[in-house]
Design a protein around this nucleic acid. Sequence first.
DNA 1: ACAACTTGCAACACTAATGACGCAAGTAAT
DNA 2: ATTACTTGCGTCATTAGTGTTGCAAGTTGT
Lengths: 199, 199
Amino acid sequence: MATLSYPVGVSETTRVMRSDAARTVRAILEAAERVLSKNPAASMEQIAEAAGVARTTVHRRFASREALVDAMAAWATRKFAEAVESAHPESTPPLVALYQVTASVLKVKSDWGFAMSRALSDDPEVARVHADVEERCDRLFRRAQAAGVLRADVDTGWARRVYYALIHEAAQSRDAEPDALATRVVDTLLRGVGTGQGL
Amino acid sequence: MATLSYPVGVSETTRVMRSDAARTVRAILEAAERVLSKNPAASMEQIAEAAGVARTTVHRRFASREALVDAMAAWATRKFAEAVESAHPESTPPLVALYQVTASVLKVKSDWGFAMSRALSDDPEVARVHADVEERCDRLFRRAQAAGVLRADVDTGWARRVYYALIHEAAQSRDAEPDALATRVVDTLLRGVGTGQGL
DNA sequence: ACAACTTGCAACACTAATGACGCAAGTAAT
DNA sequence: ATTACTTGCGTCATTAGTGTTGCAAGTTGT
């Protein structure tokens, strides 16, 4: 049984957390992202070491490995939603929104790639936010279709999956600057890599 | 130490393998693909159960978990190379070759998705074959550029990564028929999902 | 029929990882 | 300064997974 002496996780309580404890939680989350993105099977020991804390401290803050990964997913999901939100995808022309969203999401994705891949969390709140973003994406694509930017004969679901895949691919390039990547993603999404000859 | 009473793996010996043993090896490889593609951290026990054999039998045939995964990678890599080969990508017009290769690879990928994702094997033979296929892909793309099918201003490396990503994405759709998927992949790769308006 | 081979089963040893606990030392907030 | 909180360290228990071995029973090929 998990009987801990004080609260566990990030937002599981309304209690105020002492600043040093909050720093530790943050350090663990960031270290976990760094370590797990390189090796998803890494041990708690390795994560603790990367965070510069003792393994027991990790267990004090997160009741189990699963709880830690869930907290990462929740954290990254919030960042993700914020990124989409900050791009105002509903109130700008579709093409502009596409660039903005792409650039914002790429930033988050390069920092929280592992956590974001764990989107299928059992936390209903996380699932809700992801469904919400997906819905937003579909709305944006439908607006783009209406504006004649997106072809009307392509399935919106397929378009979204291609979009996600391109973002994922672009996020692997850790070197290039974000704006160039966003441009490349949107360009490839809309025009592909062909000339249009011979079709 | 691994001191087994008889040969381990698939092609690690020239000795003739009894037919029932060969069947078992095949069953294990296929079961491992099925199980590991759903859960990469699945235990040998689960793999054995899915293969309908005892766990000890798996260990008799594959000295370690690593050896099993390596054998899967080798097996899938052979299938992969055969698929590319059968499409004759060098001797047909680039556009035709693109369709043929896509369709062939999609078939293999839907059956050996996990094993193929383990492309980065330490087996030099596997690495060689993958590098070979990559080289073939680049050659095909350069021929396509020369033929005016592919834009000259896109990086060949990026085009290949997009191509791989689209194939990966299409392979997730287990329902649709392979030819339709191949068409969709090539279409999206060359034309994207945009109309070309507003760029 | 016979020899060689293969499998399942039961048992075993070993390892790595997880999680819990108490205590001493240190830090934050009042 | 005092109180409450937090951390590191050492330690322990438990579990799950891995890999090995011997043997009886069954199968394959000749």
